[in-house]
Design a protein around this nucleic acid. Structure first.
Length: 229
DNA sequence: ATTGAGATGGCCT
DNA sequence: GGCCATCTCAATT
C-alpha cells in the first residue's frame, strides 16, 4: 500500500491525484508540522511548455531528472519557495507541485512560521469578539476558520512546513528523512480538475487536481501579463 | 468577492 | 532584460 517509489515513478498525470489526501511530515529542531495535501498540479517535463524542465536540465531543475519521490524546491518572484515531488522514471523529468493542504499537526508552529498571532492571542481575540469589543470575522455568513489559510497556496505551504532551498533534493521516502511523504487518509472520491494556476504557457491543460469542496484549496488565478508604465 | 499594485531574487535567453 | 508554477494589503463592487 501507500506511496512507494515505483508508484511515484509512474506517469505524472496518474501520480498527481494519488497525492491528494497524502500527508507531508516535516520535523526540525522546532518541532513537527504535518499537512494533509488537498491541491496539486502535474508538470510533464519535455511534453509540457509549462514545466521548468521543458527546455532541458539545469542546476535548478536537476532534481526533476532524478528518481521519483524527491523534493524539488525552487525560489520564485524574488521571495517565495514552492515545492514539488519528483515523479516518473529516472531521466524523464516530471513533478507534482504541492499547492495547498490542511495542517493536521503542529498548528502552533505553523502559525508562528506564518506570522500569525499565537493561539493564546487568538483565544484572547475570541473573547474580545464575544464581548463585542472586536467584530466577528465572517465569510459567507459563517465564522471564518483562522487556520484555513496556513498552508493554502504553494508558498504558504512551504512556509508552514519550514521548507526552503536547503530542502531541495530531500528523499521523501527514506525512513530517516526529515521530510516524509506518507499515505495519510488518502482520498477516495473523484478529484476535481482544471487548468493550472498562473501559467502563461499551456494554460489550457487541466492538470490541476484538488479535493472538491475542501476549504484549504487555493483560489484559481489566470496568468496576468505585466505592464510597464 | 474581486481587482490591482507592489515587493523582490534569480534564472534563462 | 524579461519573465516568473506568489502573496498581502488596500480599494472597490
Amino acid at each position: 500500500m501507500g506511496l512507494g517509489r515505483e508508484l511515484l515513478a509512474g506517469p505524472v498525470l496518474e501520480v498527481a491525484p494519488l497525492l491528494l489526501g497524502a500527508v507531508l511530515v516535516r520535523t526540525t529542531g522546532d518541532g513537527t508540522v504535518a499537512v494533509r495535501l488537498t491541491e496539486v498540479e502535474a508538470y510533464d517535463g519535455p511534453n509540457d511548455p509549462g514545466s521548468h524542465a521543458y527546455r532541458g536540465q539545469t542546476a535548478r531543475n536537476a532534481v526533476m531528472f532524478g528518481p521519483a519521490g524527491h523534493l524539488y524546491v525552487y525560489f520564485t518572484y524574488g521571495m517565495h519557495f514552492c515545492m514539488n515531488v519528483s515523479a516518473g522514471p529516472e531521466g524523464q523529468p516530471s513533478a507534482v507541485l504541492l499547492r495547498a493542504g490542511e495542517v493536521i499537526e503542529g498548528v502552533e508552529l505553523a502559525r508562528t512560521r506564518r506570522g500569525m498571532p499565537s493561539r493564546d492571542e487568538a483565544r484572547f481575540n475570541s473573547a474580545a469578539v464575544q464581548s463585542g469589543v472586536l467584530p466577528s470575522p465572517r465569510r459567507n455568513g459563517r465564522v471564518a476558520d483562522p487556520d484555513r489559510d496556513l498552508a493554502r497556496g504553494p508558498a504558504r505551504l512551504c512556509v508552514a512546513l519550514g521548507v526552503e532551498r536547503d530542502a531541495d533534493g530531500t528523499d521523501l521516502l527514506a525512513p530517516d528523512s526529515p521530510i516524509q511523504l506518507l499515505p495519510g487518509p488518502g482520498y477516495d472520491g473523484e478529484p476535481a480538475t482544471g487548468p493550472r494556476v498562473g501559467l502563461r504557457e499551456a494554460a489550457d491543460r487541466p492538470w490541476r487536481f484538488w479535493i472538491p469542496g475542501d476549504p484549504t484549496v487555493s483560489p484559481y488565478r489566470p496568468h496576468v501579463p505585466k505592464r510597464r508604465s
